[in-house]
Simulated scan of single mutants.
Amino acid sequence: MKRTVTHLADGRELIYFDDRDDAVRDARDRRELPPPPPASEIRYDPILDEWVAIAAHRQTRTFLPPSDECPLCPSTPTRSSEIPAADYDVVVFENRFPSFSHRAGDLESVSGLTEVRHGCGRCEVVCFTSDHNSSFASLTPSRVRLVLEAWADRTAELSALPDVEQVFCFENRGEAIGVTLHHPHGQIYAYPFVTPRTRMMLSSARRHTDGNLFADVLAAERAAGERVVVENEHWTAIVPATARWPYEIHLYPRRQVPDIPALSSAERDAFGPVYLEVLRRLDGLFGFPMPYIAAWYQAPVRVDRDLAYLHLQVFSSQRAPGKLKYLAGSESAMGVFINDVRPEQAAQRLREVAL
């Protein structure tokens, strides 16, 4: 793998990850761009013990442009995009409309009990391929391995930033999920706090004093077998018994590791075949590309790394052809999910998809 660092016209960092060591990345961004926006602000909610980001500048971000105006496609002689090169393998760059940033601006005072801070951190875009009409499920295992190397690289580098407490790699796919760009890509958020869901998971793991909670859940699922979708020597994909979404799959490495950089070479090689099969089974359920969110749960940077267990959660709001699960009163107001599909049925349907 070759890693090449350059900068866009407004000073944002861009990194090429190439399979070939002889790749030349000397194209320059010729656009005239305004300076990047300052960091958002984060406000502390003392009732829910959570931080909320206020990022008003994101209202102007690009929204579902036509394919010939896609900012994630390679640049051409007649049109410059976010990627100056005429082609690429995998690219990571600073988001032009970040929710968190190291570029601190002025903070306005807020009345009440709310503590206000700069939304320090970083937001990056990860382009999986230069092919606008492709998808993650269409990647080769070797390309997935390169994406995994990019995730590992960025997790390690962002974790070293002084204000970052957790690094989150994820992909949103499909308009039903809320994507604003169709080009195959994901994002990375480097948060200035540990996220609420992570804190809740780790609190449960801390109370589980007989072994590691995640490892024990994985062992029980593998022993039961009925919710296992696919597995190999290093990875297991399961529909959890408590799935909240109609189709929800969790991918665990067999070995407990805190984050992506901690994966061995063999584990990195073995990830692609399992994950690609999961995505292709999802796409095969209803005969059209399944909308989904794929979310990596990594250990916080500084706390509870011994309790955490790296895993990937993939879930879809598509419950049937033409029918979506919406987060209505119970889910949105109370946080109590009601699933219309039995997890055991979901796992069986996924296993029965003809590939």
Results as ranks from 00 to 15, higher is better:
residue 147 V to K: 02
residue 117 R to E: 02
residue 289 P to N: 15
residue 26 D to Y: 01
residue 314 V to Y: 01
residue 333 A to P: 05
residue 251 L to V: 10
residue 95 N to Q: 14
residue 247 Y to G: 08
residue 158 L to A: 11
residue 263 L to F: 01
residue 142 S to P: 07
residue 9 A to F: 04
residue 247 Y to S: 07
residue 309 Y to T: 14
residue 72 L to A: 09
residue 103 R to K: 13
residue 248 E to M: 02
residue 15 I to H: 10
residue 348 Q to F: 08
residue 117 R to K: 13
residue 205 A to I: 02
residue 101 S to L: 03
residue 309 Y to W: 04
residue 18 D to M: 13
residue 262 A to L: 14
residue 52 V to N: 12
residue 250 H to G: 13
residue 16 Y to H: 10
residue 278 V to W: 02
residue 8 L to T: 12
residue 42 I to Y: 02
residue 174 G to H: 06
residue 172 N to A: 07
residue 71 P to M: 06
residue 21 D to C: 11
residue 269 D to V: 00
residue 182 H to W: 00
residue 351 R to N: 05
residue 353 V to F: 00
residue 338 I to H: 15
residue 126 V to M: 07
residue 307 L to S: 06
residue 198 T to F: 02
residue 213 L to E: 09
residue 52 V to C: 06
residue 293 I to M: 05
residue 177 I to M: 07
residue 143 R to D: 05
residue 166 Q to L: 07
residue 344 E to W: 08
residue 350 L to S: 12
residue 328 A to K: 00
residue 344 E to C: 04
residue 33 L to G: 14
residue 105 G to V: 00
residue 73 C to R: 06
residue 33 L to E: 15
residue 183 H to Y: 02
residue 9 A to H: 12
residue 165 E to H: 09
residue 1 M to V: 05
residue 350 L to T: 03
residue 45 D to M: 05
residue 5 V to G: 09
residue 336 V to G: 14
residue 251 L to S: 06
residue 284 G to R: 09
residue 32 E to K: 07
residue 124 E to R: 13
residue 127 C to T: 07
residue 341 V to D: 05
residue 238 I to G: 14
residue 233 E to H: 08
residue 234 H to F: 00
residue 217 V to R: 15
residue 42 I to H: 04
residue 77 P to D: 09
residue 107 L to K: 08
residue 216 D to R: 10
residue 237 A to S: 12
residue 145 R to D: 08
residue 185 H to N: 07
residue 81 S to R: 12
residue 316 S to L: 10
residue 215 A to L: 12
residue 231 E to S: 10
residue 181 L to I: 10
residue 80 S to K: 06
residue 148 L to F: 03
residue 278 V to R: 00
residue 348 Q to H: 15
residue 246 P to K: 03
residue 7 H to K: 14
residue 164 V to T: 01
residue 46 P to V: 04
residue 45 D to Y: 03
residue 247 Y to F: 13
residue 333 A to Q: 07
residue 152 A to S: 11
residue 139 L to S: 05
residue 208 H to F: 15
residue 136 F to P: 01
residue 305 R to I: 03
residue 101 S to M: 11
residue 140 T to N: 11
residue 178 G to L: 03
residue 143 R to T: 06
residue 31 R to I: 01
residue 44 Y to H: 13
